[in-house]
C-alpha cells in the first residue's frame, strides 16, 4: 500500500462528503478515485491489464448506481442539463466537447507510445547443480566435495595465502573483464551482457553457495547450465578449457577472501 496516495484519496472523499457534493461530482470522484487507487495506491504496481478489468467493473457499477432510482437519475442529470442549457456554462461546454475526443486521442497516443521491450522469459535464478562433474578427467562431487585448499586456512596459513594470491592473479587475468575490479559484477563488458554477470560483493549470493557450486559454475560456465529453467543466455565461458583445476579452486578462495564472506557449510542429511 502506498500510504500517502490512499490518505490523499480519503481526504478528498471526506471533503466531498463534508460539502455534501452533488451525486454527479461524487460519481466522478469515485471513478477517478478508484483509478488513482489502483494505479498509484500500491507499492508493487498493478499491471495495466488488470487495471482495465477493474475499471471496467467500476464504470459499470457507477453507471448502475447513478441510474438505479428516479431521485438519483434526476440528481445526476441536473448538473449535466445545466451545463448544456445555461448560457454562462457555454465555454465549459465547448471545452468539454473538445476534451472528449482529445482525451481519447491522448489515450491512444499514450498506449501506442510504449517503449519496445524484449519478450519475457521466466528464468530460475538458481540453477540446480548435478551431483558430480568431471573436470580434466577427474570426478568432483558437488554435493559431497570440498575445496581441497580450504583446510589449509587453519593447518598452513602461509600456503593458504599463496593460494589466495594465485587466485587473485587468476581473477585479474581472466574474470575481471566481466565481474569487475571490485567483484561487483560491473566489469567493462557488462553493457553487452544479458543476464548480467553475478555480483560477488552483494553480501548475499556467494555466502549462500558452497564452494563446489562456484567451482561447477566456473569450470562449466554457461554451456554447462542445466537444460530446464532456460533459456539462460549466459555468456560465461567454460573455464575448464583454459584454467587448471587448482587455478579454479584458488580463484574461488580469492572470491571469498576479497569479499570477506564465508562459504556455506555442507548440510548433513539425516538419511
Amino acid at each position: 500500500m502506498n500510504i500517502p496516495v490512499v490518505l490523499a484519496i480519503l481526504v478528498v472523499f471526506a471533503f466531498l462528503a463534508f460539502r455534501k457534493a452533488n451525486l454527479f461530482i461524487l460519481a466522478l470522484a469515485w471513478w477517478i478515485g478508484a483509478f488513482v487507487f489502483f494505479r498509484f495506491g500500491f507499492t508493487a504496481p498493478i499491471p495495466a491489464s488488470v487495471i482495465s478489468i477493474y475499471m471496467g467493473i467500476v464504470s459499470l457499477a457507477t453507471l448502475a448506481f447513478v441510474s438505479s432510482s428516479e431521485q438519483r437519475r434526476e440528481e445526476v442529470s441536473r448538473p449535466l442539463l445545466r451545463l448544456m442549457t445555461e448560457k454562462r456554462f457555454a465555454p465549459l461546454l465547448a471545452a468539454t466537447i473538445i476534451a472528449i475526443p482529445a482525451l481519447a486521442a491522448a489515450n491512444v497516443y499514450v498506449q501506442m507510445n510504449v517503449p519496445i521491450e524484449p519478450p519475457f522469459f521466466p528464468r530460475t535464478i538458481h540453477p540446480a547443480s548435478p551431483p558430480e562433474i568431471t573436470v580434466h578427467e577427474k570426478k568432483i562431487s558437488i554435493d559431497l566435495g570440498d575445496n581441497p585448499f580450504r583446510e589449509l586456512e587453519k593447518s598452513n596459513p602461509q600456503e593458504f595465502r599463496q593460494h589466495v594470491e594465485n587466485g587473485r592473479r587468476v581473477y585479474y587475468q581472466n574474470c575481471v573483464f566481466c565481474h569487475g575490479d571490485n567483484l561487483a559484477g560491473n566489469g567493462m563488458f557488462v553493457h553487452g551482457l544479458d543476464p548480467i554477470p553475478t555480483n560477488f560483493a552483494d553480501g548475499d549470493t556467494i555466502a549462500n553457495l558452497r564452494e563446489t557450486f562456484l567451482f561447477w559454475r566456473a569450470s562449466k560456465g554457461g554451456p554447462g547450465l542445466p537444460e530446464e529453467g532456460g533459456p539462460w543466455n549466459s555468456a560465461m565461458p567454460a573455464w575448464e578449457k583454459i584454467l587448471k583445476e587448482d587455478e579454479i579452486w584458488d580463484a574461488v578462495l580469492f572470491l571469498y577472501e576479497f569479499t570477506g564472506e564465508r562459504p556455506r557449510a555442507r548440510e548433513e542429511h539425516a538419511q
Binding site: 540453477p127 529453467g229 538419511q271
Partner: peptide, 22 residues
C-alpha cells in the same frame, strides 16, 4: 514443475535423479 518451490500440487522434478536412486 522443474525448479519451483513453495506450495506445490505435485512433486518438483528439479534434481529428481539424485533422489530417485535412494
Amino acid at each position: 514443475t522443474i525448479g519451483k518451490s513453495g506450495v506445490l500440487r505435485f512433486p518438483d522434478l528439479d534434481g529428481v535423479a539424485s533422489r530417485a536412486a535412494t
